[in-house]
């Protein structure tokens, strides 16, 4: 399990989580390189369709935050 590299699709709200991910960078907090961010204008933009689509396209996990 330790060498498993999950594929995570992350939907981050431009105003909070996306900014937080930027700040994590400013603070040089290191974390595993397995998620790919899709910036959205608000977590309200996330439709259940996106989440299911991400899974349909092979995501192991979907992260929504806002």
């Amino acid at each position: 399990m330790s060498d498993w590299e999950p594929k995570i699709t992350a939907f981050l709200c431009n105003w909070c989580s996306y900014g937080a991910a930027d700040l994590a960078g400013v603070s040089r907090l290191q974390y595993p390189p397995y998620f790919r961010v899709i910036r959205v204008p608000c977590s309200a933009r996330i439709s259940p369709k996106f989440i299911l689509s991400a899974f349909r396209h092979g995501a192991d996990g979907v992260w929504v935050s806002g």
């Binding site: 991910a21 994590a24 960078g25 907090l29 290191q30 974390y31 595993p32 390189p33 790919r36």
Partner: peptide, 23 residues
């Protein structure tokens, strides 16, 4: 964003960071 959310946070994994940047 390949700096704040990539190179800065995956310093020890340059290959993976490059892969992520491509993605």
């Amino acid at each position: 964003n390949i700096r704040n959310q990539d190179s800065w946070v995956h310093k020890d994994a340059p290959d993976k960071a490059t892969e992520k940047a491509k993605d």
